[in-house]
Design a protein around this nucleic acid. Structure first.
Lengths: 243, 243
DNA sequence: CGAACACTTGAACCTAATCAATGAGTGTGG
DNA sequence: CCACACTCATTGATTAGGTTCAAGTGTTCG
């Protein structure tokens, strides 16, 4: 845990309407309305390791990541942490506490220097009341999140770390979304530690498994970089996995 | 897996407005409007073991459980299943596929004979467009679901089956919501198998652990019934759990 | 009454966590 | 620019916690 608030900067958000137009939450909203929304946003920058908000922080703003990458971390007893997910540019975060009206169930930590737009819940809620389209999009997004969580629940519950790591890698690959022609290599930037916290395991185990995959030519890895050489074979491991 | 559709009955829904008024999704909606909504609902009954819908079923209706209890099950490779959650009367289900516009990510199986109201997505969507309040409530509900899933993710990822079972029991106790004066005994109706699928374990292990707790006087159990004698001690196990 | 279902318990096995120690890559400040 | 501190990654040895297999008891229901 690095320092939380010290690395924050706050400014007015401008000139981000173009970006927002293509992000799932705002798709279909009239550009001029969007402009208004953007004008009312704050603009926050957090350095690598810093936090947008901490688990337990009280109510609640909604963020949309502009650049960088954010880790949503939940810490358990004994300091074991679980990464609930990563946020990529264009995606919203902080919405769970915002809508549920509770304190944040996770911390949002910058995995790289990151900038985000911020609104108070009320602003968004009012905007949604006037733009039902957006409310529906919001519902849709949340539904997708629920679905994603259920996927992962399933995974965690049913075993074999090897699959889980394989899946996590594939998910990340898909998320980061470099032109993934089926079968072509994909490069990722993750710490093995993160991978471990993503699949509910330890860095040790991840290291071992990656080592094995490297030997087999499936992947290649150096500090914070993983190159998936054979996505198809990885997919094979992820799917039914022979015992 | 029992037969899916054979045990279904369909009728028009009537006289359920009173119930709906007190369920989270419709809270705050004008009673007369609610009446209209109820009129447009179908009414479906499913016997124990039957399904409202199956994982993979294509689009999508939204259900609200009236009586009974529903298991949301997700099946994994090798037939291992995970219970994603239980639905109690008054709660909606089926909404994830409905909003995400995908096929159902889980099966909805009646744990007891159950009746539910059903609407097509379009009906609900139109209704929401006219009642933004309800859209917001929907968001809130989903947010709570996400939060719940994250809780469980955390749990599954970090450890100790003993805790997980303890927590599952406490969660169920809270969900079922008999007047839980802190410390008083609570009765549950669950199969140990269900408990296992809830915490990502096996019926064997659950049996063993319950046996131990019985010996210690913490709980009491007979076929499909678990009585929590000492909620506080159970809470102790659930929390930090000495290694 | 018989069949299906829920639960129990012992014994063997095995995956992945833990402990311990070390190496390699990055960045910072004197 | 080099040394030191840090973070990230690696690998072997050990072991605990939980799954699996197998066999069996007790209940409920048609």
């Amino acid at each position: 845990m690095t320092d939380g608030t010290s690395s924050r900067q706050v400014t007015r958000g401008r000139e981000h309407a173009p970006l927002l137009e293509h992000c799932p939450l705002f798709e279909g909203v009239d550009p001029s309305d969007l402009e208004i929304l953007v004008q009312s946003a704050l603009h926050r920058v957090v350095k690598r390791g810093g936090f947008f908000f901490l688990e337990g922080d009280s109510p609640a703003e909604i963020y949309v990541l502009v650049t960088g990458k954010v880790r949503l971390v939940r810490s358990g007893p004994l300091g074991r942490e679980v990464i609930v997910g990563f946020v990529e540019p264009g995606e919203p975060f902080g919405y769970v506490a915002a809508w549920a009206g509770t304190s944040h169930p996770v911390s949002a930590q910058a995995a790289q220097e990151s900038r985000a737009l911020v609104w108070g819940v009320l602003t968004i809620a009012r905007f949604m009341a006037q733009h039902p389209r957006m409310a529906i999009r919001g519902l849709r997004l949340m539904a997708e999140r629920v679905e994603g969580s259920w996927d992962r629940l399933q995974e965690l519950a049913t075993g074999r770390i090897e699959w889980r790591i394989a899946r996590a890698l594939l998910r990340l690959a898909h998320l980061t979304g470099r032109a993934t022609e089926p079968g072509s290599a994909v490069a990722l930037e993750v710490r093995e530690q993160d991978l471990a916290e993503l699949v509910g395991s330890t860095a040790y185990t991840v290291s071992r498994i990656l080592a094995a995959w490297k030997r087999a030519g499936l992947v290649d890895a150096r500090r914070e970089h993983i190159l998936i050489r054979e996505p198809l074979k990885l997919r094979g491991i992820a799917q039914v996995a022979p015992r």
